[in-house]
Write a protein that binds this DNA or RNA. Structure first.
Length: 459
RNA sequence: GGCUAGGUGGCAGAGUGGUUAUGCUGCGGCCUGCAAAGCCGUCUACGCCGGUUCGAUUCCGACCCUAGCCUCCA
């Protein structure tokens, strides 16, 4: 089945065909490394990670996710903390990668950093000036929006209306209000690079254009990011790249994930409702966070609440519960086929909720099946599905043992279960129930199965 | 004001011109010493008003409401 993707530029779902047979290039706008990533930042990382996993089934994928390490917010953080910029960016790059790994995000093939591509940016800006799409003014280089006919195509904006509705103060050196900065002067205290226009630093948008061109070529297949990047960031990238590359299409498909809200409110520092992945993973399993982020279709808004996490945890409990106690070899797992319906759901514009419904269908079938061989096959299929989607990566026993240690250790729990078993064997149910109550109070729920008693930590 | 998405059962959340989404929760049952897990059943879902149609939650139009973008932002 052909993969379908929703293209922001066309405004609808279209069949996906890469530029080159069998190969796909994808570029995702990654983090600005001045702070820990919050849960909203994690959404595109998880969504496009899943897309990358799906694409790799059918194509040789080259996936780049940039790191923005030149930015006013980084400069501000440096001044505020008195720490050198390199130290700040190094710290948050590592934290980002660790945090994303904890929620099952695989490393992209390339993680280009802005600071390492200033030469490419300068060169691209020079080309834009030479070709008449950009102009220099008071140490700035600005993109001349009027020179590019297609401007506004991606974000479906009319230039004239934008001028009329502009609420931004127009810098005096700009020819037009919506002209945007490619290069700007830097003060001696701030980072700067020598350029034909004096010592300065690049504007925000040019880095993605330069890095995408360098690592993926002039025309990339998929460009992704959060919905809020459509304008102005992606619109500007598109304009720059297209003009610098003599009209070559910049990205064949534009994909944008929807926003995340917190208890129906916008997440913002002033409201104090910013949830950092770095903090969350201390108490919540990464897979729970991942599933919560994939519980709604990627283009839909997603409301984040304790209920969202609770629901994701229960869903994973169900999946882990189905495969618990079934012995599946690594080989069987690797060779198992992911059910077609599940793959089809993901290939249909990454319909993760539909894919999960297929996942639960597998679990239900497995739970109903008694034949051991069939159970093994179904469990292998579930694990293969989990490997594709980034779930079931933990041993079920470890999963049910809990993410954080409780008051009782596993050995304590096993000892109490043995004690209860002895009481049950003696038909002393009052004593057995007393043990169970004791475990229950410690947050441990027990389950008497055909092959003995198992337990799980309840939160 | 402009642009772009949405409004689905108790909650979350897919989807479809006529047939069970799925998960959680509630209720009834099976299983169990009792539970839990699991299984079976179950709770008159598609914002409002028109139109097209044999038939619309699904297509079209109006209206109401919500969110995002238009300024740094995933």
């Amino acid at each position: 089945m052909t993969i379908q993707v929703h293209d922001t530029r066309k405004g609808r779902k279209v069949p996906f065909e890469p530029l080159h047979d069998g190969e796909v290039t994808m570029y995702l706008c990654g983090p600005t490394v001045y702070n820990y990533a919050h849960i909203g930042n994690a959404r595109p990382a998880v969504v496009f990670d899943l897309l990358a996993r799906v694409l790799r089934r059918s194509y040789k994928l080259t996936f780049a996710r940039n790191i923005t390490d030149i930015d006013d917010k980084i400069n501000a953080a440096s001044i505020e903390t008195g720490k050198p910029i390199d130290e700040i960016t190094a710290k948050y790059i590592k934290a980002y990668n660790d945090d994303m790994a904890a929620i099952g995000v695989q490393r992209p093939d390339i993680e280009p950093r802005a600071t390492q591509h200033v030469a490419e940016m300068i060169s691209m800006i020079g080309e834009l000036i030479d070709k008449g799409f950009a102009y220099e003014a008071e140490g700035h280089v600005l993109f001349d929006v009027a020179s590019y006919k297609g401007y506004g195509e991606l974000s479906k904006r009319d230039l004239r209306e934008m001028i009329a509705g502009s609420r931004v103060e127009v810098a005096p050196y700009k020819r037009a209000a919506q002209d945007f900065v490619l290069w700007k002067p830097s003060t001696p205290e701030l980072p700067g690079w020598d350029s034909p226009w004096g010592r300065g630093r690049p504007g925000w948008h040019i880095e993605c254009s330069a890095m995408a061109a360098k690592h993926l070529g002039r025309t990339i297949d998929i460009h992704g990011g959060g919905l809020d990047l459509v304008f102005p960031h992606h619109e500007n990238e598109l304009a720059q790249s297209c003009c610098a590359h003599d009209g070559a299409d910049f990205a064949r498909y534009w994909m944008h994930n929807g926003f995340l809200s917190m208890d129906h409110e916008k997440m913002s520092k002033s409201l104090g409702n910013v949830v950092l992945v770095h903090e969350l993973i201390k108490t919540v399993p990464g897979e729970v966070i991942r599933l919560a982020l994939l519980s709604a279709h990627y283009r839909q808004p997603l409301d984040w609440s304790t209920e969202t996490l609770k629901s994701a945890k229960r869903q994973l409990d169900r999946l882990y519960g189905a495969i618990r106690g079934i012995d599946v070899s690594d080989e069987a797992r690797a060779n198992a086929e992911v059910p077609e319906a599940l793959v089809a759901a993901l290939e249909d514009d990454l319909n993760s909720p539909k894919a999960m419904s297929e996942f639960f269908g597998l679990a239900k079938t497995l739970n109903k099946t008694t034949d051991p061989k069939q159970r093994q096959q179904l469990a292998a299929a579930m694990l293969a599905a989990g490997d594709l989607m980034g779930f079931l990566q933990t041993d079920p026993e470890a999963w049910f043992a809990g993410h954080v240690e409780g008051e009782l250790s596993a050995d304590d729990i096993e000892a109490l279960i043995a004690k209860r078993d002895a009481a049950r064997a003696a038909r002393d149910f009052a004593a057995a129930d007393a043990v169970r109550d004791q475990l229950s109070e410690a947050g441990i729920q027990i389950e008497d199965g055909a092959s003995g008693t198992t337990w799980r930590r309840i939160d």
